[in-house]
């Protein structure tokens, strides 16, 4: 939107003011995420920039909080850093164990959500689907219903079925929370799907299974992967259900962060936050690349 030649001085003034306002809003969006990165290298246990940091003095910065992530919870953190020390980290360090739990739960629930969600999205995008709107509303509802209500319901359900405090319980719950994202992204990809391609495959003698894996799947794959990443992030960031239904020793990264923020907030939280920001940048980049690829595949322009 270039400034038109006929703009009056007032409009010119507004044009630049408007850009400044937008820049400030972008700053509001992005600054809180970036601010944690330099602060996580603070040598002091404070949440603010020290004078040394502002002067860019290297002695004001350190990796001590990242080191805490490894040593916290270890059996023998003072030992020399040999292979045995790293084994100790892998087995005992609280954050490492939480990360392992988060990955196990995240990957399993993503698999469940993606497989079930993709198959359902295929059905939902067929024109013959009966009660499409109502079923869609039900399938999207885990995203809309407040998480505290879902967690409360699961708490009652799991305590009556014995799933409380078990991995399958958390995985099923997280899969449920991730499914709406898979449905939304995959149905969005299928909207532009050319149905004559599957008919062409069938007319050339391909069975429905072959058609799906050789024709449909490669075309919708970018959408499926985006949906899977959404589901993974949902699980990786979920704390309320874990607080309600997980056993005491089933720590995950968000739960550990939650405890850290509630009890004694230390800059170690900021180093975890920094790592998570880097992870989300990587995920976002992947999704962007997939989206462009999908648009190219489907011939969508502009």
């Amino acid at each position: 939107m270039a400034l038109p030649v006929y703009a009056s001085p007032l409009e010119r003034l507004w044009y630049y003011t408007y850009r400044v306002i937008c820049a400030l809003i972008f700053l509001f969006l992005i600054a809180p995420i970036l601010i944690v990165i330099p602060l996580s290298f603070n040598i002091e246990p404070y949440f603010t920039f020290t004078e040394k940091m502002l002067a860019l003095d290297p002695t004001g910065y350190s990796l001590r909080w990242y080191d805490t992530l490894l040593t916290f919870g270890m059996a023998n953190p003072e030992a020399p850093r040999t292979t045995a020390w790293w084994v100790d980290v892998w087995n005992n360090a609280a954050w490492v164990r939480a990360a392992k739990n988060s990955v196990i739960i995240g990957v399993s629930s993503t698999l469940v959500a993606t497989v079930l969600g993709t198959v359902a999205a295929l059905g939902l995008s067929r024109p013959e689907m009966p009660f499409r709107r109502a079923i869609m509303a039900v399938l999207i509802s885990p995203m809309i219903v407040p998480i505290i209500i879902t967690a409360t319901g699961l708490f009652f359900f799991y305590s009556s079925t014995g799933l409380a405090g078990s991995y399958p319980g958390i995985i099923l719950a997280h899969a449920t929370l991730g499914i709406p994202f898979v449905i939304i992204t995959v149905t969005a990809t299928l909207i532009g799907f050319d149905r004559s391609l599957t008919r062409a495959a069938a007319s050339l003698g391909a069975s429905p299974t072959t058609t799906f894996f050789k024709v449909t799947m490669p075309l919708i794959l970018p959408g499926v992967i985006s949906g899977a990443l959404f589901a993974f992030v949902t699980s990786f960031d979920e704390v309320v259900v874990v607080l309600f239904v997980a056993a005491h020793d089933q720590q995950t990264i968000p739960r550990q962060m939650w405890n850290g923020i509630r009890e004694q907030i230390s800059p170690a939280i900021l180093s975890v936050a920094t790592i998570l920001v880097i992870v989300s940048v990587a995920l976002l980049a992947t999704v962007e690349i997939l989206r462009r690829r999908s648009e190219r595949l489907r011939g969508v322009t502009g």
Partner: peptide, 21 residues
């Protein structure tokens, strides 16, 4: 990307940032 990055960042990270700020 500036809009989507917050969207992809952990809720707890964003809440922590606001405490820090």
């Amino acid at each position: 990307i500036l809009v989507l990055l917050p969207f992809w960042t952990s809720l707890l990270v964003r809440t922590t940032s606001w405490i820090v700020l």
